[in-house]
Design a protein around this nucleic acid. Sequence first.
DNA 1: TGTTAGCACTCGGTGCGCAAGAGTGCTAAC
DNA 2: GTTAGCACTCTTGCGCACCGAGTGCTAACA
Lengths: 350, 350
Amino acid sequence: MDLSERKLKILQAIVSDFITTSEPVGSRTLSKRPDIDLSPATIRNEMSDLEEMGYLTHPHTSAGRVPSDKAYRLYVDQLMKSDDIPAENKKEIVERLGSDAQELDETVEHAAKLLSEMTNLVSFAITPNRSESKINYINFLPVDESTVVLMIVCEDGKVTNSAIKMNAPYTEDNLTLMSKVMTHNFKGKAVSTLLTENIAQTFETDMKSLQSLSGSVVPSFMKTLEKMLNVDLYMDGYSNIFRLPEYNDVAKAKNFLETVTNKDEFTNVLVNRDKGLMITIGDENSEDLKDCALITADYKVNGKLVGRLGVIGPKRMKYGEVTSVIKYITDNLSKTFEIEAPKEDADNNE
Amino acid sequence: MDLSERKLKILQAIVSDFITTSEPVGSRTLSKRPDIDLSPATIRNEMSDLEEMGYLTHPHTSAGRVPSDKAYRLYVDQLMKSDDIPAENKKEIVERLGSDAQELDETVEHAAKLLSEMTNLVSFAITPNRSESKINYINFLPVDESTVVLMIVCEDGKVTNSAIKMNAPYTEDNLTLMSKVMTHNFKGKAVSTLLTENIAQTFETDMKSLQSLSGSVVPSFMKTLEKMLNVDLYMDGYSNIFRLPEYNDVAKAKNFLETVTNKDEFTNVLVNRDKGLMITIGDENSEDLKDCALITADYKVNGKLVGRLGVIGPKRMKYGEVTSVIKYITDNLSKTFEIEAPKEDADNNE
DNA sequence: TGTTAGCACTCGGTGCGCAAGAGTGCTAAC
DNA sequence: GTTAGCACTCTTGCGCACCGAGTGCTAACA
């Protein structure tokens, strides 16, 4: 049995109906739709077929039909139409993500917020991974007699710094020398490359006189490099889930919030997804998220670095609307970060 | 009518019973307690008095008594005993907040996490306010032909940096001069003082030749100063609220999460609280939080700067246990940040 | 042969009444 | 001042009947 035109039409009607109402869809309801001109009985026959084919299920005998994961997949791939974004939303996105002197972190956080507001879902965004960013220069700066700040500037303008507790006394000249030698040795290399390099070696060959500082500096340096690889995760709209009937059950809400607030694991999920506009539904996700749908898309920074942004919610999601908004936001982010090239900001050290 | 010894004892029993069970406490239950040797009838009379005095309420005629906000206040002030922390928890706190080369931000975030784990409540922590931190030096660093990184280092080791988009061409010498002049002019001044100062003036009097850069630099400089005043808020344990019967009602859970995830407002609440170990209960809080209790305590950085950490939960809270844990954690934080003085870290700029 | 009307059947949800249980307040006795 | 006893109140849980939505099947229709 294959999917006739009519079956597709019915399936589409069921999915989109269920998406808006979250109630199992019955044959009578369907037959009342203007775009479907069939009697309930005919529809029942078709639905029965669709169920046999794995597109629909039945919560219990006397309930209507509910789409299966397979149906959502089909819907997303073939049946849904991507919706237009209301002009005022477009305007708001453009305005609020505009290029006006914002920092990358801030803008990305903002984008996540905007996204959750416009979709009424839980949104998230991660900042780009810097593993392939190249070092521009390295600087050691004095703070007090036992503390030095290490600052690493990437070619893309990203500045990372951290404090180093010195176990041996140092002079400003020492710091200048270290800065020079390390910049000379490492400039132009990618962070990921540097991580595999033997930094201590540099002290032995090029800064023999500063061997005493190597013990304090090298571990901190490595740690800072690792820190540069961290992607930040922003989330927003947690409380939106309470609008959804599927989370009226407190236990479900709890599970959802637990998996989603587990920053490390969730970041992992996001980082490891495929590139581009990705929609994963139900069992296409990991066990924890098997009742959810995730939509993500990428934004670019400087046309190269890639960050990611999206939403998570029930499978019953307005895929058309949501994907449109996500795409619009990521496109705008890319535009913002393209013109204003180096726009992120360093934070705080102590 | 005043509070006899016996009334206090009964009140204490009611409060602590209600805190553990969350069920209204009846006279019979109370009379069974080994520490109360009175008949249910006697207890009923006392309870009736206590109700008249405003310490107890009645959900309905045939239910037991529930403590009022006034009762919680009395309990916290006079009746509760502060509990010991299990040795293993102490050990864990010491280990996980230990001085081992962590950044301030990270450690504070960690502390919040620890706190929520140990109390099963929603925890939060804010980083110190830097308004009185003094400038150590100011540095402008080249990134590319139109981008410069501004870096401000405080005496306490805090580094803040941000990218500046230059509207006019610059040379490295320009940057060096700016760095020197501004450091000379502003070193030792507090951030809050600097915010009121006319920076543009500095260009006119001391860097006439660099007037063309002033337009790009001054606004960014001011923005960066403002950024230095931001306190970061970390929260953890959102999903803990689902363990509490008071949030079995989805609407209540929603309200709670909404107020608590409103970062800006909630940060405000925290920043504006009184210093030291603070417990606010029910209507002592703002309208939004009138069903909650907040406990906060301060930690010190360098013995001066003050950050804050605490929990929020239902008024029915194990005050003794929770305050002990909070105090233990803040004490440990203060110790960590005292020894390791400058330990925060700068983040990223682009 | 495909479509439709009709009908028996299923099953979750709602409302109602009833009994049980917990707790109170009051009175009277100790 | 304390306590036992009792009538009263109110919530909670349970069983039960009923309703309605929806199905599947059969038989008739075009």
